[in-house]
Amino acid sequence: MAMKLPYYPGCTLKTKAKNFETSTLAVAKELDIELVELPKWNCCGAVSSIVTDDLMHQLAPARNFVRVLEMNKSGIVDNEYRLVALCSMCYNTLKRTNLLLKNDHEKLKTINDFMYLEEDYNNEVEVVHFLEILRDIGFDKVKEKVKVDLSSLKIAPYYGCLLLRPKEIAIDNTEDPRIESDLLDSLGVKPIDNPFKKMCCGAHQTVQDKYAVARNTYTIVSGAIKAGAEAIITSCPLCAFNLDNRQREAKELYPDFEGVPILYFTQVMGLAFGVPEEELGFDLNYNDPRPLLREKNILK
């Protein structure tokens, strides 16, 4: 029987990063995991509020936790309080609020009082990232599902910030993460180590100063290319946007800069599992990965 898990997509997975969602749902199905979307979830706020007196911005994550309680109550999921996030920013924001409420009963009470129309939340939920679910079921299980040979692909993992920092929410070692390269290994892809794999892409600075972000994009992507990578994987739609679309601005700043495609890790999983191309949504990737994949005979 499929493992049924409450799933939090996040706004961008419904719009600009639809391919992250469709590819994830496809590979989850292959692994017998059913990701059940939280009913009426709301935007988590993308960044966690980190000043001591600001509870207003903790409301959004807290409300989503109440949705998990409702899912259990109505029987949509069976005693399953792990909330799976895909977007690194959503993961971080949800997880940090969850931790805050676990450690501060007074703040939890204030929030419950303010949300008096909702059921009380009492720290039932655990926030997890989809990569953690994969690690829990075992990368050897992932390996069993591989149908397509990707051994000719050289891909660099990119973690960015929010899966690893701060330490209390990290899904892996903060300074030396391996979870993405372990995943690539299991998929038969050669992982390339990029020294800039944990460097910040510049995040929301992309709205106010795209060239500042483009300089970071240049550093991160060039680092991967120098190490021999032909593509980069990520789990964050904002990192993806900054590393992918901002290559355009990076080329303006550094005319001899040559980019590489940026993929969601689930798109590579989909390729390995033989998921139909249309479910992987490569048309939404800014730098089209299909020429590379055709060259390697992975796509027709």
Binding site: C11, T15, N42, C43, G45, R63, F114, L117
Partner: peptide, 26 residues
């Protein structure tokens, strides 16, 4: 939007205003 739900509580038509605001973001 901070998901405070004030709009929904305010609506004299009893609409789930916050929910449609969230749908708009998505």
């Amino acid at each position: 939007c901070v998901s405070c739900n004030t709009c929904t509580k305010t609506c004299p038509q009893d609409l789930q205003v916050m929910d449609y605001v969230q749908a708009a973001i998505k």
